[in-house]
Amino acid sequence: MSSNTKIACKEIWKLYGSNPREFFEKNQRNPSDEAIKSEQYIPAVRNATFDVHEGEILVIMGLSGSGKSTLVRCLSRLVEPTWGKVEFDGIDLLQAPEKTLIEIRRHKMGMVFQNFALLPHRTVLQNIAFPLEVQGIDKATRESKAREIIEIVGLQGRDNYYPRELSGGQQQRVGIGRSLAVEPDIWFLDEPFSALDPLIRKEMQNEFIRLQSILGKTIVFITHDFDEAIKLADRIAIMYEGIIVQLGTAEELISNPATQYVEEFTRDIPRAKLLSVSSIMEPLSGTVSEHLSVFADDSIEKIARTVLAQESDVQVMDQQNQAVGMLRRQRLLETIFENSSEE
């Protein structure tokens, strides 16, 4: 993962209500819960500060109404934040004139919507070519480009179908295709698979992973499905009532939850899949197995079976094959069964 910053946001606030800006200024730019509640404002996003790195998949999670969509819409400036600063490649989006914004959206941003948001009067081909069309690209060029994308998203032979004539999964492929048509630098996906049934959702997730392995884009992905988040994310941000309560890798969230809320949120996640050996290893002491050693980076799920087949504890190595610690069978068992033991 490169650490070049693609989007930097500082202290983003978005309040809904009668006169949010004035209310915000009046409360020293940091209104309290009570003030917000008593004056009947809805705090959709509160004081969000974070960066999106180039090439990463940042997943935003949270319950319904926690402000995920609003936050992402602040990043793409579909929604104007009440307060804060959003920098995209060093350009201040909140100060940028409409013309600049249109240019950025035409060339650098793509977005996929929960309910597909296809244009019903256009065919698959025309929908995908739409962003190119508004740029004024000539018909032949944009259609050949759109055909390439149809190939990529797997809709060959459906070029001339209308959205109405497609299944939900196919419609979302069109939505994905449309957002990719301009080869965006950054790709926003707002719960792209929530409207699909579980089987198709799974298929689309795999499809998405395949696409990302080809394209390697910077992605901000919203979901409220933790399994989906784990499957896709480099980092996960958890939102609660408009606040980003924690931002980190899945492993960090589980092994080191910032608040009670994050802990409860992540309770039902199978730890074995996420935690690496290093998170539960201990300093070397006593005897370890002669036959087996494991890498510190391996996930617990991967090594559990072989380790538990051993009679004794095992040694942990780093990438250079240096011993860095040991893994006790007892601790491994506890970790694997942690979820169930609490019930």
Partner: peptide
């Protein structure tokens, strides 16, 4: 929003 994100004037 899809229209805006496509860069429509």
């Amino acid at each position: 929003e899809a229209g805006i994100m496509s860069g429509c004037s």
